[in-house]
Simulated scan of single mutants.
Amino acid sequence: MSQTDGTSGYDDEGPRRKKRPVLIVVLSLLTVVLIAGGIAFGYLYSLMNSFQSKAQTIESVFPSDEPRPERPDESADALNFLVIGSDVRGGSGETENLADVPNGGRSDTMMLVNIPGDRSAVNVMSIMRDTWVEIPGRGEHKINAALAFGGVPLLVQTIEGLVEAPIDHVAIIDFEGFKALTDALGGVELNNPQAFTSGGSAGEHFPAGVIELDGESALKFVRERKQFKDGDYTRVANQQLYMKAVMSEFLNADTLTNPGKISDVVSEFSPYVTVDQTLDSMKLATIGVSMRDVRSSDVTTFTLPNQGVGRSADGQSIVVYDPAATAEVAEAIKNDTLAQYVAENNLQN
């Protein structure tokens, strides 16, 4: 893999690997591509070598000077991935009272992807970007400011502090890769619950019901938030809806029995992915084989519970953090029972 230096993977001009902003993510490459289990290990390993030769790496993504959460025996074999979509233009688009935050490198989309120890499922938890939390060493801010303040290590440290569990790997995905993935799959189909027009009346219209999306239209679908009364809540739900559609398309028989199509997906998507340097081709292939029985119906998506919208003491519009609910989520992750917790509390989107 190509490699960037430093602790954040960013320099003064934004991401070293791309001029265009990292914005949207569907799921870790581990759970979008490697989940194609049942493929011969040798072929999967070859695919991952192809990925490794094209993807980018960040030298350091984990906090080095602070103690990190330990993994209890109950979840010793589980894996946690942090998947980041970052808007280097400023994240939320809000500027009030943020003069001390660099105008760039905010994490616009954050998903914690939890794979249980028995490899029977994938749990995807979205974290609202405006969630008002304590960022270590910086005080209270929207969580999407952590990336700007201290790069990927500080964002990892912040989220590990919330869920009280270690993050094993990190993936950052450029929105050009998002489009490439969609088009390599030949488009995706989903059932849109709410009609809207992206960007206002002059934009693309998405009717309610079953719709087909190519890369360009899918990007518009998952980015839109201003057309919804609840803003980012519906956008996060649409991102999860799209992610499920990608999973369904990738895991259908037509794709899994077509090595050429799988190779095309890996080839088209890889150049727009940045991962931590510990995620080598052997590890990728091994995880992929271990998940050979997972299908789209085994993917659970939900949003970290919160107390709705509100205002910070300095007047910013925020998503109010729910410490009690977050503690319950953390306990479920520790016990490797996250899917059960989500089902029992009716949290699945």
Rank of each mutant, 00 (worst) to 15 (best):
T158R: 09
I159N: 07
I159G: 02
I159F: 09
E160C: 07
L162S: 02
E164R: 14
A165Q: 10
P166A: 03
P166D: 07
H169W: 08
A171Q: 07
A171W: 01
I172A: 13
I172H: 06
I172W: 10
I173H: 09
F175Y: 13
E176M: 13
F178H: 04
K179Y: 06
A180W: 06
L181P: 00
L181V: 05
L181E: 00
D183K: 05
D183G: 05
L185M: 14
G186H: 04
N191Q: 13
N192P: 07
Q194W: 11
A195M: 08
F196H: 12
S198L: 03
S198M: 10
S198P: 06
S201G: 04
S201W: 09
S201T: 10
A202I: 14
A202P: 11
A202N: 13
E204D: 13
H205S: 15
F206D: 00
F206R: 00
P207A: 06
G209M: 02
I211R: 00
E212V: 12
L213G: 01
L213R: 02
E216C: 08
E216G: 12
E216Y: 13
S217D: 09
S217I: 07
A218K: 00
A218P: 03
L219S: 07
K220V: 11
K220T: 09
K220A: 13
V222Q: 04
R223M: 04
E224D: 10
R225P: 02
R225E: 03
R225D: 00
K226I: 07
Q227H: 13
Q227I: 07
F228C: 05
F228E: 01
K229D: 15
K229E: 15
K229R: 15
K229Y: 14
D230M: 06
D230Y: 04
G231V: 04
G231C: 06
D232L: 00
Y233I: 14
T234G: 12
T234F: 11
R235G: 00
V236C: 09
A237F: 08
A237M: 10
N238H: 15
N238F: 09
Q240Y: 02
A245L: 03
A245M: 08
M247E: 15
M247L: 15
F250K: 11
N252I: 04
N252H: 06
D254L: 08
N258G: 02
P259L: 09
P259T: 00
K261W: 03
I262V: 14
I262K: 01
S263H: 12
S263W: 06
D264L: 12
V265C: 10
